[in-house]
Lab assay of single mutants.
Amino acid sequence: MGFKLLSKLLVYLTASIMAIASPLAFSVDSSGEYPTVSEIPVGEVRLYQIADGVWSHIATQSFDGAVYPSNGLIVRDGDELLLIDTAWGAKNTAALLAEIEKQIGLPVTRAVSTHFHDDRVGGVDVLRAAGVATYASPSTRRLAEVEGNEIPTHSLEGLSSSGDAVRFGPVELFYPGAAHSTDNLIVYVPSASVLYGGCAIYELSRTSAGNVADADLAEWPTSIERIQQHYPEAQFVIPGHGLPGGLDLLKHTTNVVKAHTNRSVVE
Rank of each mutant, 00 (worst) to 15 (best):
I20D: 07
R46E: 07
V187N: 03
Q229M: 13
P221L: 13
V112N: 03
G210V: 05
Y188F: 12
A87V: 01
P239K: 01
V194R: 01
Q61K: 13
Y188K: 01
P190A: 06
A90T: 08
P239S: 03
Q228I: 05
H252W: 07
P244K: 05
L143K: 15
I20V: 10
D248H: 09
S162A: 10
E157W: 14
V171A: 10
T207V: 09
P41M: 12
S137V: 13
M1E: 04
A94I: 07
D52T: 09
H241G: 01
D216P: 04
A179M: 06
S27Y: 06
E147I: 15
L156V: 13
N92E: 05
P23N: 09
F3Y: 05
F63P: 08
S70I: 02
A98W: 11
D164P: 09
L24R: 12
G169Y: 04
K4G: 04
G43A: 13
P232H: 06
S30P: 07
T207P: 07
T60E: 06
D183H: 01
S193W: 08
H260N: 07
G105L: 15
I50M: 08
P69D: 07
C199G: 02
I186P: 00
Y34T: 14
E99M: 09
D119Y: 01
I104V: 08
A130T: 10
E225P: 02
F63K: 13
E147C: 15
V256S: 05
S137M: 09
T207Y: 10
Y188D: 01
A192F: 05
H260T: 06
G78L: 12
V237M: 04
V256M: 07
H241F: 00
S113Q: 05
G158W: 10
L5K: 05
G197T: 04
L195E: 00
L73Y: 01
D29F: 13
V11Q: 11
G123W: 03
Y12A: 12
I74M: 13
V194Q: 00
P232W: 06
I186T: 07
V28H: 04
V132C: 04
P23T: 09
V42N: 15
V212K: 11
K251C: 06
I186L: 07
L83S: 02
G197M: 01
L185W: 01
G197P: 10
H252L: 03
I151S: 08
E150S: 12
D77F: 10
G43K: 08
I50E: 03
A215E: 05
G122S: 08
Q49Y: 06
E147Y: 13
G105H: 15
Y34I: 14
S30I: 11
P221I: 15
R46N: 06
R142N: 13
R206F: 06
L13F: 06
E267W: 12
D125M: 12
T254Q: 09
L47W: 01
V45C: 03
S30V: 11
V45P: 15
H117I: 00
V257K: 02
R142G: 12
Q103W: 11
I224H: 01
A129C: 04
I238R: 01
C199I: 00
F26K: 15
G242Q: 01
D216I: 14
K258P: 04
A59N: 10
K4M: 07
R46F: 15
S193K: 11
E80P: 04
E172M: 14
S137P: 05
N255S: 10
W220K: 00
L10S: 09
A218M: 05
A51S: 13
D214H: 09
T222S: 12
L159S: 02
H57A: 02
N255P: 03
A111D: 03
V126R: 09
M1K: 04
S113A: 15
L9V: 10
P41I: 11
G148Q: 15
L250C: 04
G210P: 04
E267Q: 13
G32W: 09
I20W: 07
G43E: 10
T222H: 11
L82T: 11
G240W: 03
K8I: 05
E233C: 06
W88E: 00
V171T: 08
K4R: 05
V265W: 09
D64Y: 15
F116R: 06
M18E: 05
N149G: 13
G89Q: 03
E147L: 07
P221C: 12
S30W: 13
A165F: 15
R167F: 07
A129H: 15
D164N: 14
I50S: 03
T182R: 12
A59T: 07
P23M: 13
Y48W: 09
L10N: 10
P35E: 11
T182Q: 07
R206V: 08
A209R: 09
T253F: 00
T114N: 00
G177T: 00
M18H: 05
A111G: 14
A111N: 15
F26T: 05
A15M: 15
V67P: 09
E44C: 10
L96C: 04
S205Y: 15
S161Y: 08
G32E: 09
L10C: 12
E157R: 14
V126G: 06
P69A: 13
L82I: 11
G198P: 00
H57G: 02
L204V: 12
P41R: 09
H180E: 00
A234S: 09
S155R: 11
E33R: 12
G32F: 12
V28Q: 13
E147D: 12
K251T: 10
N71R: 01
H57S: 14
G53V: 13
V124R: 03
P190T: 05
T114D: 00
L185R: 02
I100T: 08
G177A: 01
V28A: 10
N262S: 09
Q228P: 04
A218D: 13
I224A: 05
F3Q: 05
G197C: 05
L156S: 02
G148W: 07
V194S: 02
A218W: 10
S155V: 15
V265P: 13
I151E: 06
F116E: 03
V28F: 13
P23R: 10
K251D: 05
S70N: 06
N184E: 01
S27I: 10
P176I: 02
H115A: 00
I224L: 14
T207R: 09
T207C: 05
N255C: 06
G65Q: 08
G177E: 01
T134I: 05
K4E: 15
V126K: 13
L97E: 02
P170M: 09
F116K: 04
L97Q: 04
D216K: 13
H154D: 10
D77R: 04
H180V: 00
E225K: 06
L247W: 06
P232Q: 07
D119W: 01
T60Y: 05
Q49A: 12
K102A: 14
A200R: 02
G245L: 01
K251L: 07
N211C: 04
A25P: 11
D125S: 07
I58K: 07
R46T: 07
S31W: 12
N262V: 07
N71C: 02
P107C: 04
A90Q: 08
Y196T: 02
V42R: 11
F116D: 03
R142W: 12
T93P: 01
Y68I: 15
V54P: 02
E233V: 13
I100K: 00
Q61H: 06
A165S: 11
V124T: 06
E145N: 10
D118L: 06
I84D: 00
E157N: 15
G242W: 03
A111Y: 12
E267L: 13
L9A: 07
A213T: 09
D214S: 14
R206Q: 10
A51N: 15
E233M: 10
G105Y: 15
I17H: 15
S22C: 14
S193I: 04
E33A: 13
D119F: 00
G131A: 12
D216V: 10
R226D: 04
